[in-house]
Simulated assay, not measured.
Amino acid sequence: MTQTMDKHSFTTTLLVDQTPREVFNAITNVRTWWTGGDIEGSTDKLNDEFIYQVKDIDYSKMKVIDIIPDQKVVWLVTDSSLHFVKDKSEWTGTKVRFDISQQGNKTQLIFTHEGLVPAVECYDVCSSGWTRHVQGSLLPLITTGERASQPERT
Rank of each mutant, 00 (worst) to 15 (best):
T2E: 15
T2N: 15
T4R: 09
S9K: 11
T11R: 11
T11K: 10
T12F: 01
T13K: 12
T13L: 05
L15M: 10
D17R: 10
D17K: 13
D17F: 06
Q18K: 14
T19Y: 03
T19E: 02
P20E: 04
R21S: 14
R21K: 15
R21G: 05
V23G: 06
F24R: 01
N25T: 03
A26W: 01
I27D: 00
N29W: 00
R31M: 02
R31C: 07
T32L: 06
W34P: 00
G37P: 01
G37Y: 02
D38K: 14
I39T: 05
E40L: 14
T43G: 11
T43Q: 02
D44T: 09
K45N: 07
L46D: 05
N47F: 13
D48L: 10
D48P: 10
E49Y: 09
F50I: 02
I51L: 14
V54W: 04
V54L: 00
V54Y: 05
D56A: 14
D56I: 09
I57S: 13
I57M: 12
D58I: 07
K61D: 10
K63D: 12
K63I: 08
V64F: 06
V64D: 02
I65M: 10
D66S: 14
I67M: 02
I68F: 04
Q71I: 07
V73F: 07
V74D: 09
V74M: 09
V77I: 14
V77M: 09
V77R: 05
T78N: 09
D79P: 11
D79I: 08
S80A: 15
S80E: 11
L82T: 14
F84K: 11
F84W: 13
V85Q: 08
S89G: 13
E90N: 15
W91C: 04
R97D: 08
R97V: 07
D99N: 14
Q102C: 12
Q102H: 13
N105Q: 14
K106C: 06
Q108V: 07
Q108K: 15
Q108G: 09
L109G: 12
F111L: 00
H113E: 01
E114F: 03
L116W: 02
L116S: 08
V117W: 04
P118I: 10
P118T: 12
V120P: 06
C122F: 12
C122I: 07
Y123D: 03
D124G: 11
D124W: 01
D124A: 12
S127V: 04
S127C: 03
S128A: 13
S128F: 05
S128L: 05
G129T: 12
W130Y: 05
W130E: 00
R132Q: 08
H133Y: 06
Q135V: 08
G136L: 02
S137V: 02
L138K: 00
L139P: 00
P140Q: 03
L141N: 03
I142G: 05
T143H: 02
T143F: 03
A148V: 00
P151N: 08
T154Q: 11
